[in-house]
Design a binder for these strands. Structure first.
Length: 585
DNA sequence: GTCGCTTGCCAC
DNA sequence: AAACGTGGCAAGCGAC
């Protein structure tokens, strides 16, 4: 990898003379003004800003946040051209939290991280990677020198001296790189992703506000749950140690013991060891194996305690969790959430009861109905599938068609098989995987899928079409990819995995639909009340006095009847005092 | 002590 | 011809 020219003029602004030079420079002509910050850490509510840098493709300026944030922010406010950041959500939240009277000019704001993802969704969107990818160069030697200096002096991002030249110099270079990246990516985005980019920028502000608002947690409930789970784990672990001399968390020891006890194992892990997952353990538990029962219990309790309750207690800020929402977390355009992973809360009241409404508020959830199957129907235009969806109960109608039995009702186990088949289609599962997840024999799975294909021929035709397009593009453009209705590009890592594009198209378009719904909700005035996106769902924390008026507004914003082969419908649940209430109805 | 890999499990 | 997708995260364990 080459090194970008780092001999560009850079300045540490800490006197009025240099500020004057900066203000003169600001009047020069340029394509964009790049802005960046250096902070003590990632959490806006407890980490301060240390530096704010402003630059363009040729020059960078660093302002120590104490004393000099004011002039830097005033200059940004006065600037009337494009303002670009790499990961604008982070800097925007940080700056606005620590300078409450300042607002980043929304209409002028650009984000090279979002641009980079739209242009190549399958590669890293880090500044460093994008510079290497699009400019063939990065400030590698400068970064290495800074890393070494920080290690040698045992500095962290919170303690490295602000005036240390490599630190603020690196900060300046980042703005130069961001500006240069903008010059390369913005024209591509304008010509190929204009509307989608606008949707992403709108989404950025919405999820920034969700992060700031956060989710209220009941800490007393969390502490009680943590302690109860802790006691159970403690005693079960002690029993295991006393009886066998090892901890139930050691799969290796547990497996050795099971084999010594004469247990027959058949399932292997990817690397060839004996598998000891819940599938295996539940089988042993049915045979009365006490060790299996213990291991399962400890695993379940440890998962819930460590991943959820412990983290809620550790991460909260004044009883509020501010998760990190990665707007382009997945290659498909789906969002991901971490610290804590609020998109993976176990269903049911146990963990979700930890989430309560803010003072004088109530919780409301809105989620799309079978969004992925509706999009599959949109893509393949299969008459039968469209009719089945519009019947009001897709899976029952599917089961009736496939089994040729109109007496099948909502509680018939064959409906669940039909539901599993829907997911098998969306994920491109084969007969074996479908049989395993649906819990039916290979033979029944085979029969079901072939009858499914006869009933809904458009589904297989669509899958074949996606593959044909991908194969053709691989030959002509050396890249297997497809383009979604929103213009989002989906790229396969390899021609051999081109089959995944069917899933990317469906999952990615579902993500686009959610972002459209978020934008609708924001436009309808729900912006201040949204707290979390969950792939096909939005969580709200709404003033109690406004719920009855707002529920129809939410419904209106989530339901999309125009533009798709079947309507995109959504349901609204609540109001609730706790998230867990949803599972008690 | 930190890092990376493996295995397993939570969600949609 | 055949192929379940996308994430976050914890514990165990060996390597550095």
């Amino acid at each position: 990898m080459g090194d970008v020219d780092t001999d560009v003029p850079i300045t540490f602004v800490d006197d009025t003379h240099k500020l004057g030079q900066f203000l003169t420079w600001l009047n020069e002509r340029r394509t964009c003004l790049a802005v960046d910050t250096e902070t003590e850490g990632l959490e806006f509510w407890k980490c301060g800003v240390r530096l704010i840098q402003v630059g363009d493709a040729r020059t960078g300026w660093a302002f120590p946040w104490p004393h000099w944030a004011g002039p830097a922010l005033a200059a940004i406010s006065a600037y009337d051209g494009p303002i670009v950041m790499h990961n604008a959500k982070f800097d925007t939240v940080m700056i606005e939290h620590h300078a409450p009277s300042f607002t980043v000019p929304r209409a002028q704001l650009h984000d090279t991280m979002i641009m980079g993802h739209l242009v190549s969704p399958h590669t890293s969107k880090a500044l460093k990677s994008l510079c290497t990818q699009h400019m063939g160069a990065y400030a590698s030697s400068l970064q290495r020198a800074l890393d070494e200096a920080m290690a040698k002096n045992r500095w962290t991002w919170a303690t490295v001296p602000i005036e240390f030249p490599m630190y603020w110099g690196y900060g300046c270079i980042d703005t130069v790189l961001t500006a240069r990246l903008y010059d390369i990516l913005h024209p591509q985005v304008q010509s190929s992703y204009e509307d989608l980019y606008e949707l992403e920028m709108a989404t950025m502000h919405i999820v920034a506000s969700m992060e700031k608002r956060g989710a209220r947690v009941d800490l007393a409930y969390c502490a009680r749950a943590r302690d109860q789970l802790g006691e159970f784990i403690e005693s079960a672990t002690q029993w295991c140690l006393d009886t066998y001399g090892f901890r139930p968390g050691s799969n290796r020891e547990v497996t050795r013991q099971l084999l010594a006890d004469g247990v027959t194992l058949t399932k292997r892990t990817k690397s060839g060891d004996w598998a000891l997952d819940d599938d295996v353990l539940s089988g042993l538990e049915l045979q009365g194996n006490v060790l299996a029962t213990t291991v399962r219990g400890v695993r379940k309790a440890t998962k819930v305690k460590s991943t959820y309750f412990d983290n809620f207690i550790t991460l909260h800020d004044n009883e509020v969790l501010h998760p990190s929402i990665n707007q382009l977390g997945a290659r498909t355009g789906r969002m991901s959430v971490n610290s804590p992973a609020l998109q993976t809360l176990p269903r049911g009241p146990m963990v979700r009861d930890a989430f309560i409404a803010s003072d004088d508020n109530v919780l409301v959830m809105a989620d799309s109905d079978q969004i992925e199957m509706r999009l599959l129907a949109h893509f393949c235009r299969d008459e039968g599938l469209i009719t089945a969806i519009n019947s009001g109960d897709l899976h029952t109608d599917t089961a009736r068609r496939v089994y040729g039995d109109m007496s099948i009702g909502k509680k018939d186990p064959r409906r669940q098989t039909a539901k599993n088949a829907a997911f098998a289609k969306v994920y491109m599962a084969g007969v074996d995987k479908f049989a395993a997840t649906a819990g039916v024999s290979i033979e029944e799975a085979r029969t079901f899928l072939s009858e499914y294909d006869r009933q809904f021929p458009g589904v297989k035709a669509f899958q074949k079409h996606v593959d044909a397009v991908a194969q053709q593009r691989f030959i002509e453009e050396r890249q297997a990819y497809v383009t979604a209705p929103t213009g989002r590009k989906h790229v396969a890592d390899d021609v051999r995995t081109a089959y995944k594009l069917v899933n990317y198209l469906i999952q990615g378009t579902a993500a686009d639909v959610l972002k459209m719904q978020l934008r609708n909700l924001d436009l309808a005035g729900l912006g201040p009340y949204m707290t979390l996106p969950v792939h096909d769902e939005v969580v709200f924390d709404i003033p109690r006095s406004e719920v009855s008026e707002l529920i129809p507004v939410i419904s209106q914003a989530m339901n999309i009847t125009e533009g798709w082969a079947v309507p995109i419908t959504a349901g609204v649940d609540g109001p609730y005092e706790r998230w867990g209430d949803k599972y008690r109805e």
